[in-house]
Amino acid sequence: MTQFLDFSLGGIANGAVIALMAFALVLVWRSSRVVNFAQVGQAMFTTFISLWVYESSGSWLLALLIAIFAGAILGLVVHLLVMKPVHRADASGAIIATFGVLIALQAGAGMIWGGDPKAFLPPVANSGLEFAGRIWPVSWYDLLIFAVTSLLVIVLSYVFIRTSFGLAMRASALNPEVARLCGVRVSRMLILGWALAGSVGAIAGVLIAPSATLSPNSFDLLLVFAFTAAVIGGLDSLVGAVAFGVGSGLALSLVTGYSDASNAPIVSLALLVVILLIKPDGFFSQSKSRVV
């Protein structure tokens, strides 16, 4: 039982990062109806930039802010330079194009920063906390991850649910034509959606980097887990992405704990297949079937 608790607690921080990446995927899906497989590539790229800022300035907070900014710019660039022209020609080609962007970003990062894994040191201690006479599988850094993620989810939920900007974003996602007829500048909302997703992904990248090493391919597995969480959540539900992101973090930690880390991606994919078979719309899908 103690073991189970330890494995679960150990998975929460990881789950929070998966949740953020899934959140980014959902943001793009909602604005463009495209799964952006380049999302982790963008995050990897901005994390390299962030690492450079961190090492030269010594400030983790500044590094995080730069990552957020760079993430928005990169999201914007990917949307305007690649996705928009491709999407106009062919919607399914757009998904393939995101793979192209992913490969280009990984190759570019390899050329600039090299393929050797680099260490991204955590700003606070990343070793288990001692409390009530034992060492827990949760570190100060895990708590920081959890705090940043929670804050971000709360702020973004507020923006989406309560503000006019959020209403315009949601309308653009649900029914772009009606949104335009209501005076919403939908193409601008699309750009903002990509920029916002870029920033959220960038935060996820900076947060996860200290848990492993940073190399051009180091976030590939994160894509698998985040994609699974986003799809199970219904692909258009921010709540679903967060819930199943955290949930898959827990599940993966349990799988890793009780068997072996190399089983985690297989379990994730198996879960995806099973859920798609029984509930292809996911669990939190917002869109109601429209009855004519």
């Binding site: 649900l174 007829l181 917002q286 109601k288 429209r290």
Partner: peptide, 11 residues
Amino acid sequence: VPEGRSTIAEF
């Protein structure tokens, strides 16, 4: 006001 039910059902 377009043809059909143009209200957003999720709102």
